[in-house]
Write a protein that binds this DNA or RNA. Structure first.
Ligand code: MN
Ligand code: MN
Ligand code: ZN
Ligand code: ZN
Lengths: 144, 144
DNA sequence: TTCTTATATAGGAATCATTCTTATTTGTCA
DNA sequence: TGACAAATAAGAATGATTCCTATATAAGAA
């Protein structure tokens, strides 16, 4: 079963329609491993889909989050960024250029949520976020 | 040395002026343990400081981040939230009401950043973010 | 204390991100 | 092949943040 077939299946299961827009947005999101914004997805799709509206992109991405095939990434910024990588993983953010890198760590995954929190929250997700400056940006700083 | 004296000292060290606006904003941020937005700080200060501008609040909060006396909180949302709690700690977010709870965990703090990331990033900060639904919001759901 | 000047602020306009409204179109299923 | 609920396009509206610039002021020098 290829990507598109599996997407159709998920839509069926969730009772939402398989539209060309949704398919294109899903495709674009899966293709990019770099946590794109709605605007970036919009621009990417526009080439082959000149009448698509930015609103549809936002709406669709949030639909994907609701049905569990995408995540909104935690950021300090004012722009939502989306992630189609649904494996358990963690993020390293560059505070200069905004790049977000995925990484995997069994140690991190196995951390227990403290009892104190489990008493007060129904936990759905747990993620480690690392802030720093990437190599490229450090280099740029030195060059000045 | 009280809060205001220590704030004056930090400003001196960082070479920025001690203005009544900055003092009031710092005070308001320290008073709130609930990760307020710039708008909330603005409204709180406005009472005693009727001419303060929202722009000053934003600018000042970002100055505090730059000189290391505040953090921008990681969120999925489109509004910046600020944190004057500079101790090492972690966050639990309620996805329904947006509440952000601090928590402390030596286990979390002691996690090593993977070599893979240290090779590519100068790490400045590491934080665990837990997503879930708080008690109050779960209750509300049931009541419907 | 007074003067000087680099910084900071107020206020409003501008910009960017996101959501809403409504008329139209289109998957889906009988 | 319809019927109809759901989805989309387009543009307006809203919300968050930043920019512009004239004015005010903190802080060090005299
Ligand atoms: Mn990711
Ligand atoms: Mn906190
Ligand atoms: Zn970078
Ligand atoms: Zn809640």
């Amino acid at each position: 079963m290829n990507r598109i077939e599996s997407f159709r299946k998920i839509c069926k299961e969730q009772g939402i329609k398989v539209t060309p827009q949704r398919t294109a947005i899903f495709d674009a999101l899966e293709d990019s491993r770099d946590h794109p914004t709605a605007e970036i997805i919009f621009q990417a799709i526009r080439k082959r889909f000149p009448t698509i509206s930015l609103d549809t992109v936002y709406r669709t991405l949030m639909t994907f989050v609701k049905i569990g095939i995408a995540h909104v990434v935690e950021t300090q910024g004012n722009t939502k960024r989306f992630d189609a990588n649904m494996e358990i993983h963690h993020h390293a953010h560059c505070l200069k250029c905004g790049k977000i890198l995925d990484f995997y760590s069994a140690d991190y995954d196995n951390l227990e949520v403290p009892q104190e929190i489990r008493n007060q929250f129904t936990v759905m997700d747990k993620k480690v976020v690392i802030h720093g400056v990437c190599k490229k940006c450090s280099q740029k700083q030195k060059d000045l």
